[in-house]
Amino acid sequence: MSFDYGPLRTYEITWRSGHIETVQGHQVTYTGGRDLLGHGPERPVRFRIHGMFDDQWRLTLAGLEDDVAVIRDVTDGERIAPEVGR
Rank of each mutant, 00 (worst) to 15 (best):
S2P: 10
S2K: 12
S2I: 10
F3L: 09
F3G: 10
Y5V: 13
G6C: 14
P7C: 08
P7E: 14
L8A: 14
R9M: 15
T10F: 09
T10Q: 13
T10P: 03
Y11T: 03
E12F: 03
E12T: 02
I13F: 08
I13K: 09
I13P: 02
W15Y: 13
R16K: 09
R16A: 01
S17D: 11
G18M: 06
G18A: 03
H19C: 03
I20S: 12
T22Q: 14
T22A: 11
T22S: 15
V23R: 09
H26Y: 01
Q27K: 06
Q27R: 11
V28R: 10
Y30W: 09
Y30L: 14
Y30A: 09
T31Y: 04
G32H: 00
R34C: 03
R34D: 03
L36T: 00
L36F: 05
L37S: 04
H39M: 12
H39C: 09
G40P: 04
G40I: 02
G40E: 05
G40M: 05
P41A: 11
P41K: 14
P41Y: 10
P41C: 04
E42Y: 15
R43Q: 07
R43M: 03
R43K: 02
P44D: 12
P44S: 07
P44Q: 13
V45W: 08
V45C: 08
V45S: 07
R46I: 05
R46C: 06
R46A: 13
F47S: 05
H50P: 01
M52F: 02
F53N: 02
D54F: 01
D55A: 15
D55I: 07
Q56K: 07
Q56P: 03
W57S: 12
R58Y: 00
L61S: 02
A62R: 07
L64H: 13
L64D: 13
E65L: 11
E65A: 10
D66S: 12
D67C: 00
A69R: 15
V70D: 15
V70L: 15
T75R: 03
G77V: 07
G77L: 02
E78R: 01
E78F: 03
E78G: 04
R79V: 15
R79D: 08
R79H: 12
I80E: 11
P82W: 00
P82L: 01
E83H: 06
V84F: 14
R86A: 15
R86F: 11
